[in-house]
Computed example of a mutant assay.
Amino acid sequence: MSARPHMRLPPPWRLWLLLACAWHGLLYAAAPAPAAAPGESVLKAAFLYRIAGLVEWPPGTFERQDDPLVVAVAGHEAVAAELEQIAAGRTLDGRPIVVRRVREGEPIAGAHVLMIGATGETRVRELAASATGPVLVVTEQENGHRLGGILNFTSDGDRVRFTASLPVADARGVRLSARLLAVAQSVEGRSR
Rank of each mutant, 00 (worst) to 15 (best):
H145K: 10
L48V: 06
A46E: 03
A171H: 01
R125M: 11
A171P: 01
P68N: 12
E77D: 14
L180N: 02
T139S: 13
W57D: 07
D93E: 15
A88E: 11
G173D: 00
F62D: 05
R101G: 08
A88G: 07
G75T: 13
A178W: 05
T139N: 11
V183T: 08
V99Q: 05
L181C: 06
A171E: 08
P96C: 09
S130P: 00
V124G: 12
L166F: 01
L180T: 02
Y49I: 11
L54A: 09
L127I: 04
A72G: 12
A72F: 10
R50Q: 13
I150V: 15
T154G: 13
N143T: 09
H145N: 12
G120Y: 09
E140V: 07
R100T: 12
P59V: 02
D156K: 06
A169S: 03
G157P: 07
T139Q: 09
E126S: 13
A111Q: 03
A72V: 08
V138D: 04
S130F: 00
D156M: 05
G173C: 02
A164P: 06
D67T: 09
Q185I: 00
I97M: 15
R90E: 11
P167A: 12
V98E: 14
L136W: 00
P167S: 12
V70R: 11
T163A: 13
L92Q: 14
R64C: 08
V98R: 15
A164M: 06
V113N: 09
V137D: 04
E142C: 10
